[in-house]
Design a protein around this nucleic acid. Sequence first.
DNA 1: CCTCCGATGTGCT
DNA 2: GCACATCGGAGGC
Length: 197
Amino acid sequence: MTRATAPVAEQARGLLGARLVGHGVTIVLTEVEAYAGPDDPASHAYTRTPRSEIMYGPPGRLYVYRIHGHHCANIVVRGTGPAAAVLLRAGEVVGGAEIARERRHATRSTPVPDAHLARGPGNLCRALGITMDDLDTDLTDPASPVRLETASRRPGRMRVVAGPRVGVRLAADRQWRFHIDGHPSVSPYRRHPRAGG
DNA sequence: CCTCCGATGTGCT
DNA sequence: GCACATCGGAGGC
């Protein structure tokens, strides 16, 4: 969402440092991934179906899906292709930490370090209370329970690292994952066991 | 209708 | 590092 028609990878990169509020918890984004459309085999929008239709729509909306019993959240952006979205992989909790701890604790036996409250896309959604009910939320509406505040933090001191996306089988070497270098909330990289080019 | 399988997380070795 | 829980989407029959 930095520029209206910038490539999706640049839009993803530009979201690092932005604030995201979800049901009373605020995070600063530290790790994101870019997903495109028909030219990106790893994207749900690779095939146009009812589920992926939202990514062909207007930017600034929330795309939520479930995988392995967890929720994952994306911001729909306007890329150069017909569909684009940015997966929110991790963030640093900067507000509402008590709520986030409660939500994370509810599904675990062992305690969660504060730096890991929103580490990984499933955990991020859990911490922010994001479920399928939040699908299609307008993130630019100040009244939305989930919203994006575009103001960047520490624009200069932020070293950004690019690398391959986590856990994807197809297009596994595309360098579309971006994260803040050395930040403790960033999830570990895992390559898909059967990853192809 | 049924099968396959993933943009994951957790706990254990 | 490894196993497995877990469930809806997508596609095959």
